[in-house]
Amino acid sequence: MTTELISDSSEQARFDARIAANERVEPKDWMPDAYRRNVIRQMSQHAHSEVIGMQPEGNWISRAPTLQRKAILLAKVQDEAGHGLYLYSATETLGVTREDLVEALHQGRAKYASIFNYPSLTWADVGAIGWLVDGAAIVNQISLQQTSYGPYARAMVRICKEESFHMRQGYEIMLTLCRGSDAQRAMAQDALNRWWWPSLMMFGPHDAESAHSAQSMLWKLKRQSNDDLRQKFIDQTVPQADFLGIHIPDPQLRWNATSGHYNFGEIDWSEFQRVINGDGPCNRERLSHHVRAHDDGAWVRETLAAYRAKHSARSAEHA
């Protein structure tokens, strides 16, 4: 017992030194249980977000207005599935199975990004989601490329490479609409009106009010504060909206020459709380869609088990 305590505390010291030196923690390294749980939570929720995010965007593939837009949107949503896959894989390095993670999602123990609880109502929403939601995700993910857990950081590098295409395709859709007919411009403005504030909420609450922020920062899982990342997103996006010629729905938005940033209005935190806690426009649908797809696919997954059992000798030959 004494020996374990001693080796645990020297492991802790080694872990702390690694974090302090900005080195990566890898799957087989000793790590505090709380760190392991935090990493599993963060990565799996990121994975769930990618997968749930396929729903509002996938909603427009069959109705994309041109063949090129159809192909691009399909490729984008396919990328999101791939991102989910990279992140579930990275989470599995910590000894938890994808099945466990999906079950946690279905039982409401795991969350996903609240932004995907809003409906995609028009083609302009597809543009707004690419521009704003992927834009916000990129700000967050660039920061996470420096996260302390190795597999997570590497997944972020891979994802960031693919994500810039996503944001561009969204912005290009908005640009085309804003240069189009009155109806198209109105569609673009309407989408911005509905997606602006939820995009700001993607960065989470003020850090002082976030349960996990402080500890995540200490462990260098999180590298910048919610508020800093949110400000960065606003500063880069306002000029983009100006270029489009559409108006951000915040009467208090204005450039502050002294701070070198945009001042902006207060977020409706009661809406944020409602949506993150299950009472947004689409929460029930998003989850029940995922549950249904999973249940409908159960017989297919079981088929693989049955085929494998019957043919394990033949599989070995093919391998």
């Binding site: 896959l85 990279y86 894989s89 990275a90 599995e92 994808r98 997944a155 891979r158 693989l304 085929y307 494998r308 599989s315 093919h318 391998a319």
Partner: peptide, 11 residues
């Protein structure tokens, strides 16, 4: 190494 995935067999 780029990641992992679940599959029934090597093929």
């Amino acid at each position: 190494h780029v990641g992992s995935l679940h599959a029934q067999d090597h093929r």
